[in-house]
């Protein structure tokens, strides 16, 4: 009954103790904010909603469609949850999903759970929210929602995979100049599947229950902080990743600044590997640039389409 694991769930053994503890701390911190926020904003009925939607996301990850040959596209669900529940409740819902997957199905490790929560429940949700809000500010038209959903879903997968790759690189389990472009390009593709399913789901929901997608619900009621957070995370990861992959020494520099280098020298941790193969650099940079160009294109196309729609609207109404 279990889907093939999406490649974003990091198992135990891959992250150094320092990296796992750091992301545990970050995730616990963000979650406690989310809990405080939801306590104030949630209505009583949102707790059963979170539990049941967590089950739906889990089950929804079983749904797939064949792309070609043996490969198939399937759903992670962070963007869909964000659009339906708003960012704080979506973060908690994804937390439940990812934790149960780790605890019961060994899909992702328990020590690595902090990092996995950070990628899927925090980065995934914040990025979805920021992109979705950004695009909906351009147009409130019903028809535009699936497109915004596609962009939100794609970006959430893409950016979360960058975060995942950086965690591996910091742990010394996969060198940055290979892990980042590899993860980024794989997830640029996986993101398309996620985006298309999310858009399809939004089309369906828009027909059956348009009230759920009308701007007045959970999504718009949330704070500006998440929006800013999502943008900051996206930009930071998009900038940090090519930097890290083209200048792997950069990681070492960061680590030195943080005083981690001492930890790295002790036999317990081996944080920062030194890199060979300088020739890969430019190629890595090219892949990352391609990814960034992808982001720009998706945004550009969506903006272009809304812009055209807004211009042509007066004509429509006359017809």
């Amino acid at each position: 009954m279990h889907p093939s694991p999406p490649p974003m769930h990091i198992p135990d053994g891959f992250l150094s103790i320092v990296v796992s503890s750091f992301f545990w701390a970050v995730s616990v911190g963000v979650l406690s904010i989310a809990l405080r926020k939801t306590k104030r904003m949630l209505r009583e009925k949102d707790f059963p909603l979170m539990g049941v939607l967590a089950a739906a996301i889990f089950a929804g990850q079983m749904l797939n469609f064949s792309v070609t040959g043996g490969t198939s596209g399937h759903l992670l669900g962070a963007a869909l949850a964000t659009i339906l529940l708003g960012p704080w409740a979506a973060t908690l819902t994804m937390t439940v999903v990812v934790s149960v997957q780790a605890l019961i199905f060994q899909d992702g490790g328990l020590l690595a759970l902090g990092a996995n929560l950070f990628n899927m429940a925090i980065v995934g949700v914040a990025v979805s929210y920021a992109v979705y809000r950004l695009l909906l500010n351009l147009s409130k038209k019903q028809k535009f929602i699936p497109l915004a959903g596609f962009a939100a879903a794609w970006s959430s997968i893409f950016i979360a995979s960058l975060s995942c790759a950086l965690q591996l690189a910091f742990s010394g389990t996969s060198p940055a100049q290979i892990a980042i472009p590899a993860m980024a390009s794989i997830h640029a593709l996986i993101g398309i599947g996620e985006g298309m399913i999310t858009a399809g789901a939004l089309i369906f929901i828009g027909r059956a229950r348009p009230d759920l997608l009308s701007g007045e619900t959970a999504v718009s009621a949330s704070s500006r902080g998440v929006f800013t957070g999502g943008i900051v995370i996206s930009v930071a990861l998009a900038v940090l990743s090519p930097l890290a992959s083209s200048h792997p020494d950069g990681l070492e520099w960061v680590a030195e600044q943080q005083g981690f280098i001492e930890a790295a020298r002790s036999p317990m941790y081996n944080l920062i590997p030194d890199y060979l193969l300088p020739g890969v650099e430019s190629e890595a940079l090219a892949t990352i640039l391609a990814g960034l160009i992808g982001v720009v294109i998706v945004l550009g196309v969506s903006i272009g389409i809304t812009h055209n729609r807004q211009i042509s609207r007066p004509n429509d109404s006359r017809l």
């Binding site: 929804g60 469609f65 599947g193």
Partner: peptide, 13 residues
């Protein structure tokens, strides 16, 4: 993908 999305949508609804 749209069909699958519709299935996901109906599951969510």
């Amino acid at each position: 993908a749209k069909v699958t999305g519709g299935m996901a949508g109906s599951l969510f609804l």
